[in-house]
Nucleic acid binder design. Sequence first.
RNA 1: GGCCCCAUCGUCUAGCGGCUUAGGACGUCAGGUUCUCAUCCUGAUGACACCGGUUCAAAUCCGGUUGGGGCCGCCA
Length: 544
Amino acid sequence: MSAEDFKFFKRERDKREREMSFKLIEPGEVRVRIAPSPTGFLHIGTTRTALFNYLFANQSVGSFVLRIEDTDLERSNPKFEKDIMENLKWLGIEWSEGPDIAGEYGPYRQSQRLDTYSKYLEKLLSEDKAYYCFCSEEELEDQRQYQMSIGETPRYSGKCANLPKETVKKYLAEGKPSVIRFRVPVKKIYFDDLIRGKLEFDTGLMGDIAIAKSISTPLYNFAVVIDDFEMKISHVIRGEDHISNTPKQILIQQVLGLPRPKYAHLPLILGPDRTKLSKRHGSVSISEYKKAGYLPEALINFMAFLGWNPGTEREIYSLPSLIKEFSLDRVQKGGAVFNNKRLDYLNGFYLRRRSTEKLTEMCIPYLIEAGLIERIENNPGNPKKEKGDLKLFEAEEPEYKIIETGEEISFETLGKIVAMYQERLKKLSEISELTDFFFKDKLKYSKDLLRWEEMSDAELKSSLKILGETLSGMKLEDWIKENLEKNLLLKAEEIGDRGKLLWPLRAALSGKEASAGPFEIAEILGKEKTLKRIKDAKFLISNS
RNA sequence: GGCCCCAUCGUCUAGCGGCUUAGGACGUCAGGUUCUCAUCCUGAUGACACCGGUUCAAAUCCGGUUGGGGCCGCCA
């Protein structure tokens, strides 16, 4: 058996085993959820968790629930909820239930499920499995500090655990600030993590945990348990930062007699310093990446490979192909550093793959934003944009105007400009900086930019002169890049070093050290502007 | 500090006891194409944290050490 055959054989065997274990752990219906709290814009970490949940649900015809965890009224804001939903949709991560898509288990906002929580809370309270605690926050904080200082695990002392009923009643009547604590049974909790295997915890180390601020305001660890049960969640797939919450939640399930979902804790996404990715590392919200001009498919492909890989050498995956290939048992255990360079590479790759037409549509808003062009509104006889045969319409009527010069510019011409830069683009936002010289009247650059290697001023002048003469001799109807190239290359051969003619030309036309080629730029600029820019360059040489 | 988790090139990772001179991708460097940049092509660089054990055989299994991370809220 050759090495290749062997690898193939092994891969097939692994696949079969995976399928078998999948069947073993998946007897029932798969229902997963993503439960963001609307206290910030959609975060990279949340999105990766959403992606993995989405992939897992969709490869087994399961349900994917979007639940909004907005129990913290202070910090929750509907605008964040909107951002979360819009960006998930933009990425193509579609959920099948909640918060506005009806399912059997709604409502899907915790703020709308308060009655449910109080029902369970009352049950716990009446069975003395939970109790009111009247300790002040300062008191608790001091205690924490003290316990840490003597090397103990900070945990609640149990001071209010056995308050007489009358005292509790009295305090409650007085409106004394309180929380509801869960009486934590001291025992060992074991659970099987789908990614990490057996995990073990000693609950004696955690003290009685707060599960609600009041009968109508539940806290995270409690609300999650209730919701996951009520919504019949089969698999809880979430970040590793929740591992230590899991035993708490299991304990509450046990006391309430609720079934336990399967758990899978995903490795964290890390910043360059290998700590949990957060705002201080820079951009962490999807909307920022969207604005910078990253494509959904690039972001998806990139995020999928943060902590997961298919085990083959294929690296390019769309959402549907990820659904096919994804499996939890190929998820990594260690955290993954978010590598911007790789994201840029993938984005460039997907940008090059887009049709020029589509790309142009996507670039135009950035050109407008940069103040380079504007849309001509209400242009009579100019049909509204339709997807499909754009060119037919746009070629006839200019739809845009160059702000600096007031000239009209067609979608088709913009398309040619974009096409020129398609393979140079890493993200859409770069388009304006790359192509601004097309939309300017006068270019600003220093004389030395025109110089190719060690050219003297005299040589430079002579090159510019040849350029001017050759180009002004061309007929307007011949002004296309093929002819420009043919004529200019002829002259360049005469000089010997092509750079002596082509570099000054390109520099004079673009005003940039790096740009697209001179012939294609000249074609777009047109004869008049091209000659004017050569004249400007001559002027710059003479006057310095 | 306590509890828990983790450990292969700079980064993402392949590796499930012999197929391995540890493979791929990004990055970096060099070369080719080229007026420049980019694309594309070729090549190079570069890792099993350490120490013990198990075994005929260990990156792979076990133990320890070290290192890194997460959590320890009336946040989620």
